[in-house]
Design a protein around this nucleic acid. Sequence first.
DNA 1: TTGTATGCGTTATCAG
DNA 2: CTGATAACGCATACAA
Lengths: 349, 349
Amino acid sequence: MNDKPTSAKKAPSSRPDGVVTLEQVAELAGVSPSTVSRILNGTAAVSQVKKDAVHAAIQELGFRPNPVARGLAGGKTLSIGVVTQIISSPFYGEALLGIERELERAGYVPLFVSGNWHEDDERKAIETLLSRRVDGVIVLAGRIADAELAKVSDNLPVVVVGRQLSGPQLFSFSFDNREGARLATQHLVEQGHRRIAFIAGDLLHDDAVERQNGYFDALAAAGIAQDPNLIVQSDYTEAGGMLSVSRLLERDTHFTALFASNDQMAIGACLGLHRRNLRVPDDVSLVGFDDLIMARYSMPPLTTVRQSVYEIGTEAAKAMLDMLRGSQPKATLPGPELVVRESTRRMQR
Amino acid sequence: MNDKPTSAKKAPSSRPDGVVTLEQVAELAGVSPSTVSRILNGTAAVSQVKKDAVHAAIQELGFRPNPVARGLAGGKTLSIGVVTQIISSPFYGEALLGIERELERAGYVPLFVSGNWHEDDERKAIETLLSRRVDGVIVLAGRIADAELAKVSDNLPVVVVGRQLSGPQLFSFSFDNREGARLATQHLVEQGHRRIAFIAGDLLHDDAVERQNGYFDALAAAGIAQDPNLIVQSDYTEAGGMLSVSRLLERDTHFTALFASNDQMAIGACLGLHRRNLRVPDDVSLVGFDDLIMARYSMPPLTTVRQSVYEIGTEAAKAMLDMLRGSQPKATLPGPELVVRESTRRMQR
DNA sequence: TTGTATGCGTTATCAG
DNA sequence: CTGATAACGCATACAA
């Protein structure tokens, strides 16, 4: 225990604070710091003996590498920036959970910043992330220009969800929104509805456009003409859904079914209809999109299109990890699936 | 523009990558790096002339200090760890948003990690945070022992929401759950209800206990005896709320009102009641707690107790910033407030 | 008030 | 396979 005169020039043996450094590990294991680093990162082959000694030392000292120092020295911070839009949204929450879980398994930590559906905020968010030296960036939808994202990917791997981009360090994938929306609308058609209103999301976003296209697809397949009076654009929020119903009703156009392009708007629409004394599904059949938890517990339980938002998160994270380790990223999402609950019914009469 | 022979020993004037360093700023401004650092941190007084020169240089070069290097050198990473339970929960989402917004104003970034309502996970989360060298930790509820949190606060400022702790670097505050629950129950009593069922949260947690106490308070004040048959313990989820209704109904005890101690359980309960052909509020008056967005849009819109979860977030962040700058932390939360909507009504007959 | 020197904990580039 | 040694970008005693 006291083989050395503790008066060595440099004896970081134990510091006042509980911080254990790689250097101490090296000392205890009787090797050089570089060797410890190599073992930690698998940067080079090391003899088994030293490996064991180092691992033992790590155990004994309870050493945990300092990501900050790591970040400075090697450029790797083991953290992944995630640009979300509204962290409090039930939709994004699910995705973030998936990302967090998947990243954690690989020792990475997500750094969440909100873009607030605002281009400037997104840009700032990315700035923040870059200045924090994240190892990669995952972008969930958003408004920032494709070109800007591409530029970011010059320096870092970037995964984008909900767009179609690609590049050497740029990977993107989307849920099949169009097909999902088509299924939803088709379901309504099959129930005998022909006057099917549609609440679109913000058409600045691909996914909103795709969902609208899916709606058109189903209409076309059924030989139903599009009626602009049945379409209203909104913003994916409950309040927006409720307001949309008012707008629709003010137009004095008759409809027996309503497809809201996300669950939140559907929930809001449901209340809006209720306020006008229109019952779901008796007077109006209602379909949502996303299958958030709220869809299952709404009254009546909402027919909707299932997309596993959680899986979108895990897939994005996996793709990022792929890129990080140099392999070809991929993402396989389950296809859209209609979940029929109690907000839709066959048209009467 | 070219006053110096560009063959100086060290001329980091412009690097291949676009990274601008403090050193370059110093060079351009004609001062030493330390001076730039001082200006940036306000560590010492600097002459106005140099200040201006430095600021100009910063502008011109678009310099942004590297938080990673900062973290290594000064021990400050300008990041605050946040231990949340489930990042995807609508409740926590709101709080996180508040934290993020408030922290951002001060140049800090939150690092969210999930505790998953699991002691071990929480411990690991805190470990992760510490190894990331966060400047402080905000803990939202959770299961980890008070003593452990106190220990963490030996090295770092800690803000805990939902418990009663304190110490030199430890600050906590809670929403007045007891009073909120009392208000909710009292409302039911005032509506003429006497058989009021209660769905408790996990009683391992202070807030759940407090809400139950508030329920008891109101009962006592009204001279109504507690009936264990009317109480069921659950877990703050929609599924739990729904299940609780079944459990309640199986007991064959009659009740005309139900107080679910959070909105999510109330929503679940509402569906559960519906499944048994019990109408809200006609057969059963229902009250929730939290006033999440979903409460406003549920069918019927839910009477509940408002607590600004967003503000809980901002207050926690403010308290943390207070501690960080050495001043006494404080947190003032608006008191509980009953929001009467359409899920409750005067008892008939 | 300002500059110099040193260190923060790792990784990476060299020689052996 | 392994060990010195030099960065990484900034903060901070210490001098001046």
